[in-house]
Amino acid sequence: MMSLIANETKKLTLRFSTWLYPLIILAIVLALSASYKSFIPDLDNVQLMLSINSISMFLVALFSIVVASAVVSSEFSYGTIKLLLIRPYQRWQILLSKYIVVLLYAVLLTLFVLIMSYVIGGIITSFGSLSQDISAINPTYSENGDVLNASQTALHALSSQLGYFLVQLIFSSSIAFMISSLLRSQALAVGIGLFLLFVNSIAGGITLMLVEQFQWFKYIFMAPLYYISMNANGLGMDVKGLSPGLALGVLAVYYVVFMALSFIFFQKRDVSV
Rank of each mutant, 00 (worst) to 15 (best):
G163L: 09
L166D: 03
I120V: 09
H156P: 00
S131R: 11
T153C: 08
S126C: 00
L148C: 00
G121A: 00
Y164I: 02
S117V: 04
G163T: 12
S159I: 13
S151R: 09
F177D: 03
V147T: 13
G145S: 03
Y118L: 06
Y118K: 05
F127R: 10
I134H: 03
V119L: 15
I115N: 03
S142G: 11
L162I: 09
S180N: 05
D133M: 06
S135R: 02
A136N: 15
N138S: 14
I115G: 03
S159K: 06
G145W: 07
Q132L: 05
A150D: 12
Q132V: 10
S135A: 08
F112N: 07
Y141Q: 00
Q161Y: 04
S180R: 15
H156R: 08
L169F: 12
S181H: 08
N138A: 14
S173N: 03
L166I: 10
A176S: 11
I170N: 00
A157I: 07
I115W: 02
T153D: 12
L182E: 08
S142K: 15
L162Y: 13
I175R: 07
V113A: 05
I134K: 02
A157N: 03
S180D: 02
D133S: 13
L114A: 04
R184K: 12
L166Q: 02
A150N: 06
G128H: 00
S126Y: 13
S117C: 02
N144I: 12
S174H: 06
S151E: 08
G122Y: 07
A150V: 15
H156M: 01
G128V: 02
A154I: 13
V167T: 09
L114Y: 04
L166H: 02
L166T: 03
S173P: 01
I175W: 09
G122P: 14
G163M: 10
I123T: 03
M116N: 10
A154L: 12
I137M: 14
L111D: 13
S129G: 11
V119T: 02
S135M: 05
A154P: 03
N144P: 10
F112L: 15
L169Y: 05
D146G: 01
N149H: 09
